[in-house]
Amino acid sequence: MERTAVVTDSPCAIQIRGLSKTYKTGFWFTPKVTHALKTVQLDVYENQAFGLMGLNGAGKTTLIKLVLGLLRPTAGSVAVLGGNISQRGVRQRIGYLPELPYFSKQHTGRELLGYFGSLHGLAGSALQHRVDEILDLVRMRSAAGLKVSGYSKGMLQRIGIGQALIGKPRLLICDEPMSGLDPVGYKEMRDIFIDLKKAGTTLFLNTHILDEVERVCDRVGILHEGVLKEVVPISKILESSVPVDYWIDVDGAEAAKLSGMPFQETVRNNGGVQVSGLVLAETLALLTARKAQVKGVRPLSSQVEAYFLKAIGAQAHLNRPIGGRRP
């Protein structure tokens, strides 16, 4: 896949300086303070795709809401497209897709897009033309006349991305854009992002789907417990030497040959062993020496996932069996 080079002297689409957010909850006598974000510094460059990764509750959505002006910072500042988010001109050039967008159920998809288009100043035939363009882009033309109440989760997500794109944004901010999408929708959404990036739209994707980050983003920020641990080009992650776990498939009849393996982490009697990438070569050599029939070797995690887990200090995660990927 074509990747744009990370040019750090590009103008900033989002410039965050010393951003902190504290939530105060509870009653007068039992106040509880939660530090959602702690002194975040971040530059998101124009014409690039930036991925913000983090576990649930890391502060990703809080960061997006602060960028959009839906929350006010406790400290620090945010500049968006060289201005303040409260300026109409700045918001005119931004598209936003919230996590699991919710729409008034009484409208059709076409009406919703028309409404959001009119908020961007579109009217008449220009609005209708743009709505049709968007409906085609998100593949919702056939369902455009149906009320939103009859839409599936994936269709809502498509209309959600449609309303975000209706004003031809220079900066597109998406909070978990792949939520609720089936594999086809997932691929289509990813293709939309790649096309937008090629067209020069800056993307800010808030996600914990690491595959999406790897395929779309140029730079990645890792947010953990309100702290931006690091910001790194994706190319650097892919070239990094962070070990990835592998699953070695061995013929089930030869499972006995797996016992007493020096580097094994998990062994299945039906044939297989999980090892770290650091000892993959040694393990394979040992299995060959024992004349075990190796049927295949497959990575259990991606490079991005391994890097992410290492960055947030989740060593335990590196060693745990990864259920979804287990053969």
Binding site: L68, G89, Q92, F103, F116
Partner: peptide, 18 residues
């Protein structure tokens, strides 16, 4: 319920609308 509880208001307020 729609605007505040289900947070549909986010979409309006993120648009170029005061």
């Amino acid at each position: 319920t729609t605007e505040m509880d289900q947070k549909a208001i986010f979409l309006h307020l993120a648009k170029p609308l005061t």
